[in-house]
Amino acid sequence: MKKNTNTNVWGGGNEPMKSEYGKMMMWFFLISDALTFSGFLTAYAFVRFRFEMQWPVAEDVFTHFPGLQGEQPLLYVAFMTFVLIMSSVTMVLAVNAGHQLRKTATAWWMVATILGGAIFVSSQAWEWYHFIIGDKGGVELSSSQVLKVADLEGEVLSLSQVVNGMENGHKANHELIFSDEEVFSSIRLNNNLVLQNPGKDHMPLTREATLRALNGAHVVQGANMIHNEYGKQQFANFFFFITGFHGFHVFSGVVLNIMVFYNVMLGTYDRRKSYGMVEKIGLYWHFVDLVWVFVFTFFYLV
């Protein structure tokens, strides 16, 4: 960065914010981005308050962990959070090394940050895959309300368990598609099965109401922008939109990090005698981490 040598105030010698132009503009961009994300998250809160009863509980939705059997609620997002915090740390270390004009150290910490970002984006792809393909399946009533099949104790059963029986249910993989007829006749035959709300209190229907509700209902498996087996449709739409928008931020961050890394290797910042670019991209990267901290809380915990 070329230092301004003019000390005359009207000649541009005044620096009220004692900050490089680019860094300041990065901050103001981040403010507007923060407001965008808060718009998304508050809209999520608004719709969720409206449909409290039918809103899926995140721990019932995101229950898989690669390589582990059974239900592992929160574990996978916890891992993703850890990866992102870790990559934030390597980014600070890169900025720190940049301040001391240590080219090799900066480059290595940039590589670590890029790797962290790549792991995060691929983890998100894995989670999207499982969200889209579905878990236990649900029943969409003619009123477009989505309910889960459960036994009288309130334990939610997968469609595979409903059709093939409890013992054989787990053998089936997630790709199995069940017809309305298969599922509904199994529900009609088994007096222990009722439909229940996906929301927090899991309010079940009575057996009679269940049988009545099956008229005109459809089986839903998986989630997309039109159908959502986990509960209220908007839950899936918000999930795709908010985590998608955040994931795209991470992806852009990785691309920008690669560009800055490339310039570090070329020695561009060494010649400038300033690693200000690393600092600016660092601000963006921490912001992405910051947004994830909030998405993690409001999507998965609260």
Binding site: P16, M17, K18, S88, L283, F294
Partner: peptide, 25 residues
């Protein structure tokens, strides 16, 4: 929500270095 705000504060103050900028910024 409280713990999240604490985390956010630490990221902004230290990782994003805002604690050490001048007041106007």
């Amino acid at each position: 929500i409280g713990l999240t705000l604490v985390k956010a504060a630490y990221i902004v103050q230290y990782f994003m270095h805002l604690k050490y900028e001048v007041d106007s910024l």
